[in-house]
Computed example of a mutant assay.
Amino acid sequence: MWRIVLMLLVAALTGCQQTPANQMLRSADDLLQNQAFMPVETAIETREQIFKLPEDLVLKARQEILAYSDPRERSLALLKFIFREQTDPLQYVNNATLTALETYEQREANCLSLTILSYSLARSLGFRAQFQDVQIPEYWITRNGTSVLNGHVNLVVTPPYMQTLTKTFISASHNFLIDFERAGGSRERLPVRKINEADIVALFYNNKAADAMLTQQFDLAYRYLQEAAAVAPTVAATWNNLAVLYRQRSMPEAAELAYLQSLALEPDHPNTMANLAILYDLLGRHADSVQLSDKVQQTRLRNPYYFVMQGNEALSQQRFTDAEIAFHRSIRLEPKMPEALFGLARVAILQHDYAAATGYLQRARLHAAPGADRRLYDHKIEMLNAVAQAD
Rank of each mutant, 00 (worst) to 15 (best):
L6I: 08
L8G: 00
G15V: 07
Q23S: 12
Q23C: 05
L25H: 12
L31C: 06
Q33A: 13
N34W: 11
Q35M: 13
A36N: 05
P39G: 02
E41I: 08
T42R: 06
E45D: 11
F51D: 02
F51W: 15
K52G: 00
L53V: 10
V58W: 00
D70W: 00
P71I: 06
S75F: 03
L79N: 01
K80M: 13
F83R: 15
F83N: 11
R84C: 05
L90C: 10
Q91Y: 02
N95Y: 13
T97E: 04
E102R: 06
R107E: 09
A109T: 03
S113N: 09
L114G: 02
S118N: 04
A122E: 13
F127C: 07
R128S: 14
Q130M: 12
D133T: 06
I136H: 03
E138N: 14
E138P: 04
W140A: 10
T142A: 11
T146C: 05
N150E: 12
N150G: 14
V153S: 05
V153M: 11
L155R: 08
V156F: 04
M162H: 09
T164F: 08
T166E: 12
K167I: 04
K167A: 10
I170T: 06
H174A: 10
L177W: 07
S186L: 11
L190M: 11
P191G: 14
V192W: 04
R193L: 09
N196M: 03
A210S: 15
T215E: 09
D219Y: 00
D219V: 03
Y222K: 04
A232P: 01
Q248K: 13
R249K: 15
M251S: 09
A254W: 09
S262G: 12
S262D: 04
E266L: 15
P270V: 08
N271Y: 09
A277S: 14
D281I: 01
L282N: 07
H286A: 09
D288T: 05
S289P: 02
S293A: 15
D294P: 00
K295P: 00
K295W: 05
T299W: 05
L301M: 07
N303S: 02
Y306K: 06
G311P: 03
A314N: 08
T321H: 06
D322K: 15
E324Y: 02
E324C: 03
R329S: 14
I331F: 09
I331D: 12
L333E: 02
M337G: 01
E339L: 14
E339V: 07
A340N: 04
L341M: 15
V347C: 09
A348P: 05
A348E: 07
A348Q: 13
I349M: 14
Y354I: 00
A357H: 00
Y360L: 10
Q362S: 12
A364W: 01
L366C: 03
A368K: 07
P370V: 13
D378Y: 02
N385F: 00
A386W: 08
Q389G: 00
D391I: 10
